[in-house]
């Protein structure tokens, strides 16, 4: 598998560390307590048989976290974005 890092270009997946589902969001309730939102965040994952948005880390490269959109049936990568950009965009009021 080859991942096209926005900074480093296309690199073998062995340079990256995998984190998983990029669709979950950390509750912003100050860590009040182990409520349902927290349990979902920590333990439940999207696991589609199809396109998946997931976090990868370019450990042996620029150390960027990336949001990779990848088909879990074929491993074909549709899109690679900087996680930071995705996170900032998500914070903006829609």
């Amino acid at each position: 598998m080859r991942i096209n890092c926005p900074y480093c270009g296309e690199r073998g997946s062995e340079e990256f560390a995998y984190h998983g589902d990029a669709t979950v969001t950390r509750p912003r309730d100050g860590g009040a307590g182990p409520n349902a939102a927290w349990i979902d965040y920590v333990y439940l994952r999207e696991n589609p048989s199809g396109l998946h948005r997931e976090l990868w880390y370019h450990a042996s490269g620029c150390q960027s976290w990336l949001v990779v959109t990848r088909d879990l049936r074929t491993h074909a990568i549709a899109r690679v974005e900087l996680a930071r950009s995705v996170a900032l965009a998500r914070m903006e009021p829609s």
């Binding site: 560390a17 984190h19 950390r26 976090l55 880390y57 450990a59 150390q63 960027s64 976290w65 900087l82 996680a83 930071r84 996170a87 900032l88 914070m91």
Partner: peptide, 18 residues
């Protein structure tokens, strides 16, 4: 050492980019 560095980058780039 490596794991914590990765964790800090995760926290910053993904959780608290601001």
């Amino acid at each position: 050492a490596g794991k914590i560095f990765q964790h800090l980058e995760f926290c910053h780039q993904w959780l608290w980019p601001e």
